[in-house]
């Protein structure tokens, strides 16, 4: 099966910038189709020759990436509707790997924070539940 990847996707592959599943797809195709390796080598040669690509510049400078604060607000549900829609688009459809990583990190922080909250509540409960039982007697 011959895979056709857009040039922008191959450029992003060279920069390790595609979403993980797309990276894996290209790696698989590279093993199956030696011609693809030459296509990628040609892209490297174009870069070495000094040619620019809009997608690579856009990605490298992160020209449309939401800030980390905006990603945090997105998770808290406090972004405007249109900005929240854009964040979803940028992370999921445009597949921005750096923003995906930031979002995953923020979510992990949130989960850790939840654990801390749960542990504190458990401590309050355990230290006070005895008093509750005494009142019921």
């Amino acid at each position: 099966m011959i895979h056709r990847f857009p040039q922008a996707a191959l450029e992003a592959y060279l920069d390790e910038a595609l979403p993980a599943e797309d990276m894996a797809r290209i790696e698989k195709a590279l093993r199956d189709e030696p011609k693809l390796a030459h296509e990628l080598a040609a892209l490297n040669a174009r870069r070495d020759a000094g040619l620019h690509s809009l997608g690579a510049i856009w990605r490298r400078h992160r020209l449309s990436c939401p800030s980390r604060e905006q990603l945090g607000s997105y998770l808290l549900g406090t972004l405007s509707r249109e900005m929240a829609d854009y964040v979803e688009f940028h992370v999921q459809m445009a597949g921005c790997r750096c923003c995906q990583a930031n979002l995953a990190d923020l979510e992990a922080h949130q989960a850790e924070a939840d654990e801390i909250v749960q542990s504190r509540r458990r401590k309050y409960f355990q230290s006070s539940a005895g008093y509750l039982r005494r009142r019921r007697r």
């Binding site: 857009p6 040039q7 922008a8 992003a12 809009l54 997608g55 449309s64 249109e82 854009y86 459809m93």
Partner: peptide
């Protein structure tokens, strides 16, 4: 200007390389 559709279209065309 709230032209989010244009941002999205340009991003898919040039960053993702979609037709």
């Amino acid at each position: 200007r709230g032209d989010w559709e244009k941002v999205r279209a340009a991003e898919l065309l040039f960053v993702r390389g979609w037709a």
